[in-house]
Design a protein around this nucleic acid. Structure first.
Lengths: 230, 230
DNA sequence: ACACTATTCATACAAATGTATGATAAGCGT
DNA sequence: ACGCTTATCATACATTTGTATGAATAGTGT
């Protein structure tokens, strides 16, 4: 295969794995690809997977329409690429924090674990605020494709979350724990999905720029929830 | 105007208001309209506003394509109709519960208020389980049309929620209260949107058929969250 | 400078979309 | 039984959708 563009139907993903990654940096090319990812990230976050057309994305990215089939094959693959670009670094950071926590000697408490789990996601992507919103949104997207993809991602990247939380809630019976975990996800995703929502709800200004602020309020709420008598 | 079908562009909504409502019952007609609402309710709940086409809806409803322009004018109006059909009875039930609570004499507590606010929504629509999922989903839908509509609905139908919760959290400073209210919404909508999610999260079977069960777990979590030291 | 690959572009296309419409049928009051 | 409104139907239409492709350009190793 000369393998210039995405082959047939599902042949994507192999091509360029080695090549492009190796070469990516010394080229000034691939600007389209990167710009596409950025634009798609933002638009998907704002309007959802089905709420944006490929044409809107290429327009925002100032890139040709053909760039999408070329670089990603399908809209769905583009979406995946958007998520995966950030998901891995996110997991790494989360795990590093957990490691640090364990190294501190005594067994970490619920509050510390919550902090370690949430902070990276809340601060996700220094470069770009849109990813955290996308993550929240996508997690509640009812579309089957999106659900499937997200399940995939959660299995790979987020398995540590329930595992670590279980450790610091060892005394809870299974059913109680999982219901509280469910509540935890609800809070996390809601705040991730729309950091500005609180302003709408409250009808006044809030500092939503710094993620630590949100965590300052959210973590005590969650801690108390987990700690409440069964 | 002979006013048989939706006029021009935005003339809908007036026609039939008096007429149809008065006649609706003694006719066996309007079956299409009702079936459309049911099918749309379910499909919107499952796949979101942008995730379903009008054709999918009319097919599920076993109704002609033209019935949508005829009865509702646009897809968006259909969506509104789906929501409004249930939203009002929902509010009424919520308010009745609150009234009963106040009549009991002593000032109602946080837990009782939570119960009164949540139970109607969790049990929303005896006839049809889909509405509660739709309500949850729609509340997180990023699409501007849906957001606008939901804001509208919340202002009319849900204003009582923050008001009542504020009463039983009078001691909290504004910022703390609103952040906790935010968390509350997150939990509520998440559980409403996908009652079966907990099974995915836990990886095992849960009883998700009876809303009281969910509330048994969720309300203590929320109560503790609101009650946690600021 | 040359061969070659990687990328970008303008354009095409079939499928799906929301909406509109004229013809037809059904239901009601009289 | 008739007239009139309400409802249903088959069908049409202009857009928008995702994806594909061949030609043109830019970049790289030699």
């Amino acid at each position: 295969m000369t393998a210039t563009r995405v082959a047939g139907k599902g042949g994507m993903g192999k091509r360029r794995k080695a090549k492009v990654q190796a070469v990516a940096k010394r080229r000034q090319g691939l600007a389209s690809r990167e710009r596409l990812l950025d634009a798609a990230e933002k638009l998907f976050a704002l309007y959802g997977f089905n709420g944006v057309s490929v044409r809107q994305i290429v327009h925002a990215a100032k890139v040709n329409l053909g760039a999408v089939p070329y670089h990603f094959g399908t809209k769905e693959e583009l979406f995946k690429a958007v998520i995966y670009r950030r998901a891995q670094p996110l997991r790494e950071e989360r795990e590093e924090r957990l490691k640090k926590l364990r190294e501190k000697g005594k067994k970490p408490g619920l509050e510390e674990v919550l902090w370690a789990l949430l902070e990276p996601a809340f601060r996700a992507s220094r470069e770009n605020e849109w990813f955290r919103r996308l993550l929240g949104r996508a997690s509640m997207d009812p579309t089957p494709e999106v659900k499937k993809l997200l399940a995939e991602i959660y299995n790979v990247e987020f398995m540590v979350v329930p595992k670590e939380l279980r450790k610091v809630n060892a005394e809870l019976p299974d059913d109680v724990f999982y219901w509280r975990l469910n509540c935890f996800y609800g809070v996390m995703l809601f705040v991730l999905a729309d950091p500005g929502k609180i302003q709408t709800i409250a009808g006044k200004e809030f500092d939503t720029s710094r993620p630590e602020v949100a965590l300052k309020y959210v973590i005590p709420f969650l801690t108390a929830g987990f700690r409440s008598p069964a």
